[in-house]
Design a protein around this nucleic acid. Structure first.
Lengths: 339, 339
DNA sequence: TTGAAAGCGCTAACAA
DNA sequence: TTGTTAGCGCTTTCAA
């Protein structure tokens, strides 16, 4: 035999086994595994790499996390990862995090504040290095993160909390453009299918709708409020159709609602955009494949996710908290009446 | 002052701080935090709870994981969590895992085998207690998990590997029913929009389509193969419409494809189900809100996810590997021609 | 019922 | 360039 026989030690292979097999110290193994902080002679490195391969060594992340105080993990809290908007967010965050060697802990809060708080607490206990939070409320409770000194970034929010990093779009302006576009098609009675939010102040999308109407000298159209879901949009659609002054165009505050709305319209035998034109908000893929394809205000989810991860554990880490506004873009398709 | 002053020790609060503050040993703190393995006098317990609250103590999960050799985390590997089928799977797995105190590490492999392998490796290094794998291939590489003695369950797969726990539906039978239903509406020329899979053998859905046709004494309709995406379905739809023998009904191998197919049909000015009837596979919510709503074969994703988690870290842990087949159900809506 | 202490696998400061 | 070793925070055996 050349070296010590490949240890028949039970259990998983540790750095100690590798060290013994390669005939070096555990420190050296660390150095080659982490590429530092000390240099290692090429020959030694080769021996170690060899031992690692032969033994099938895999570093223990828990031990590393304990020692370093970092789990190389980031947490994501969303209301419901099944919602296309959040599933895209999750995907983008995962990509950006993986790029930097971080893994993604996904939690759903089901639009439930207590659950959201529990999720945050749990993530904090797990020593995540940062959390991306798409909260169900305007001013989420961040104390658990703060006391653990875990950075966080809020998503999809207006500039409510001064002391927090957050990213979002200008809801007012986005909605305004979508409604203005409807007005430009000659519509005089433009309704609103609005998602119900938990804040006190009116949602930016509602303000944007109002603003566009005012700018165009149009009267306020009918409003139907319902959940930010397909079901919600469907219900809102039925109510809007039944309203005394049935609108000739409707702005939906999310693509999901618009999809439900479309169903209500189709069921009523109405043609879109012929009888009623529609625009919505989010820019999810689903909006591209509805019938007719939805004209919608795109949120740059990927960019926001990347910026969030960068702020948490990437190049922008440690920058002072601020609210960053991302540009929206009107994706013109057919539901508005454009050819 | 009553007890030692609340330690001004820097950094996060550890169990040592709590012990000092409560005037007990660290072992006792462990006992009360974990509710065992030793009993603690009520008075002592109260003191400890108090200290925990006052100090804002949160146990360090990394240390716990290191000591216990378990991270109380399970990993999920999917091709793309943006796909409604997988987003539902992720949600269901997260729910089931959270129920048992486990967190969910989400990874996307982007339909890329190398990335899938990397993800699995990474999860293994992170000491996850189990992995739910929706692989891009039939016989995924599980060696990293096996060598780390991490249990895994394969999802959405036929009974290929004997030594692995897996769950899935009977694709053949599900597809057969969907196609049979089309035939029962009197269709004689039933096409297939088939997703491209990586295996050698024909996908079960294709076999089921064939079988239903044979059972009904019908000739083989045209096939269009494309990706398991909306885009793929759209492309397949256009090809099917251009085919010499344009079918009067089409079975799509996934809801996503069906949605794309529907778009192709609408663009061609065809009415569904009037001109062409459609059924598909998966039973995702999106299929309920397409126009017309899709008749589709539902996979019990939630049940499969729950069973997977149970097999990994729940009641069924340690049971011998086997393939479990879950029942499908035809969700009848309008795209097939039913009123 | 409580406490002392060993050690999980790793990193990095310090020594050689 | 390499090795020794203290300790990260926790659980749990063993002793008191």
């Amino acid at each position: 035999m050349t070296t010590q026989p490949a240890s028949a030690s039970r259990g998983p292979v540790t750095r100690k086994d590798v060290a013994r097999y390669a005939g070096v110290s555990t420190a050296v193994v660390s150095y080659v595994v982490n590429g530092g902080p000390k240099k290692v002679a090429p020959a030694t490195e080769a021996k170690v790499q060899d031992a690692i391969r032969v033994l099938g060594y895999r570093p223990n992340a828990a031990a590393r996390a304990l020692k370093l105080g970092s789990s190389e993990t980031i947490g994501l809290v969303v209301p419901d990862n099944t919602n296309p908007f959040y599933s895209l967010l999750a995907h983008a965050v995962e990509d950006a995090a993986a790029e930097l060697g971080y893994a993604l802990l996904l939690t759903n809060s089901a639009g439930n504040l207590a659950k959201e708080r529990r999720n945050i607490r749990n993530l904090a206990a797990r020593q995540v290095d940062g959390v991306v939070l798409a909260s169900v409320v305007f001013e989420p409770d961040l104390v658990d993160l703060e006391s653990a000194e875990i950075p966080s970034v809020l998503l999809s929010h207006s500039d409510s909390q001064a002391e927090v990093t957050s990213m979002g779009v200008d809801l007012v302006e986005g909605a305004r453009i979508a409604v203005e576009h409807l007005a430009s098609h000659g519509h005089k009675n433009i309704g609103l299918a609005m998602g119900t939010t938990t804040g006190d102040e009116a949602d930016g999308r509602e303000q944007g709708w109002l603003k566009a109407l005012a700018d165009a000298g149009l009267p306020e159209g009918p409003i139907a409020r319902s959940a930010f879901t397909r079901e919600g949009g469907y219900a809102a659609g039925k109510r809007l159709l039944a309203s005394a002054q049935r609108p000739s165009a409707i702005f939906a505050s999310s693509d999901l609602q618009a999809v439900g709305l479309l169903r209500a319209l189709h069921e009523a035998g109405l043609s879109v955009p012929g009888d009623i034109a529609v625009t919505s908000f989010d820019g999810s893929v689903e909006a591209e494949y509805s019938w007719p394809p939805l004209t919608t205000v795109e949120q740059p989810v990927r960019e926001m996710a990347e910026a969030a991860v960068r702020a948490l554990v990437g190049a922008d880490r440690g920058e002072p908290p601020r609210h960053r506004v991302f540009p929206t873009r009107l994706l013109v398709r057919q539901s508005c009446g454009c050819p």
